[in-house]
């Protein structure tokens, strides 16, 4: 068998599968964003009843609708803010954890890393549900928080079905994605650099801010991309932990596809999300490459 035939025999099956079940559906979604809605929702059929224009035609109607009504841009902005806050909080929780693992004894590192990943492998819904219990109005935690607030004379606040609950859920679910790239980076740092800084008179916080942190920036960017991008499109967490006004762009996409059944408009929203996701991934890669120069 020629090497060329061999290459196709090996790479052909997965390539073919992913072309059919990933590339083509994505391409169809792009087309769908320029199509009309069908009579019973979904997409207008390519053949059948309807004006010729609706059947074969493409339209910018859904894109116009997106830009005419600011509510959708506002929702993207809101999702962007939630994802940003989530990323920053993940960084704040993950950094000390990753640093602690990287500086602990070599024998323990493997286990400590595994312990970070283990919860990630449990079902996503279970992890969100756990916060439903913790933040629920009758839970010990919610009563304790409101007890403390009460001593300061503040009104009790509902924790569940609030933006706070959504943020906690987002941070909880995405935390491992921040810890791992940070750890992989921090573990490679040469301890001699810190010794040198100390010998030259740097205090603990100076050693951190002027040696450890700048060196860890590639890990920070990688972690930020891994948290920010999935957080941007999430719909289940606001759906379960958020209140009625807690919806994000993912929820609207879900509504357009399953409830309103306006697939062209749902596709437009998905397209914008795709462009943002790829844009941020590219930005993270670009920044990481510049850092290395």
């Amino acid at each position: 068998m020629s090497p060329r035939a061999q290459k196709w025999l090996i790479s052909g099956p997965p390539l073919g599968y992913l072309l059919v079940f990933f590339a083509i559906p994505t391409f169809i979604m792009v087309l769908a964003s320029f199509r009309y809605v069908g009579e019973l929702g979904g997409l207008a059929p390519l053949v059948g009843s309807g004006t010729p224009d609706e059947l074969a035609g493409l339209t910018l109607e859904s894109y116009q609708r997106f830009f005419e009504d600011t509510i959708y841009l506002e929702l993207f902005l809101k999702s962007f803010l939630y994802a940003t806050v989530t990323t920053l909080l993940c960084l704040a929780v993950a950094y000390p954890l990753a640093l602690m693992i990287a500086r602990s004894d070599k024998r323990w590192r493997e286990l400590l890393v595994l312990l970070v990943i283990l919860p990630f492998w449990s079902n996503f819904l279970i992890r969100v549900y756990a916060w439903m219990i913790i933040l629920g109005p009758q839970s010990g935690f919610a009563r304790a928080v409101n007890g403390v607030l009460g001593t300061f004379g503040a009104e009790p606040i509902p924790l569940l079905f609030s933006p706070i609950a959504v943020i906690i859920g987002l941070v909880y679910v995405h935390l491992p994605f921040m810890v791992l790239p940070l750890y992989v980076n921090l573990e490679k740092h040469d301890p001699a650099l810190l010794d040198a800084a100390q010998d030259l008179g740097a205090k603990a916080w100076q050693r951190f801010w002027r040696v450890t942190f700048p060196l860890s920036l590639p890990g920070v960017y990688a972690g930020a991309a891994l948290v920010f991008i999935p957080a941007l499109g999430i719909f289940a967490i606001p759906d379960i932990l958020g209140g009625t006004d807690g919806i994000l762009i993912g929820n609207v996409i879900k509504q357009q596809f399953l409830d309103a059944r306006d697939w062209p408009f749902g596709s437009v929203l998905s397209m914008v999300l795709t462009v943002l996701a790829i844009g941020f991934a590219g930005l993270a890669a670009w920044v990481a490459r510049r850092q290395r120069l």
């Binding site: 290459k7 090996i10 790479s11 997965p14 390539l15 992913l18 072309l19 079940f21 990933f22 590339a23 083509i24 559906p25 994505t26 169809i28 979604m29 769908a32 997409l43 991008i229 999935p230 941007l232 499109g233 999430i234 719909f235 993912g250 996409i253 879900k254 596809f257 697939w263 749902g266 596709s267 998905s270 999300l273 795709t274 996701a277 790829i278 991934a281």
Partner: peptide, 29 residues
């Protein structure tokens, strides 16, 4: 084994993009 351009992109993108995008595009498909 090989220097491929398309396959790595198709293999890695589904992992990188928000899951909902794959869900809705497969639904349409």
């Amino acid at each position: 084994r090989y220097r491929l351009r398309l396959l790595p992109v198709l293999v890695l993108t589904p992992i990188a993009i928000p899951e909902i995008l794959m869900g809705v595009s497969l639904l349409i498909f």
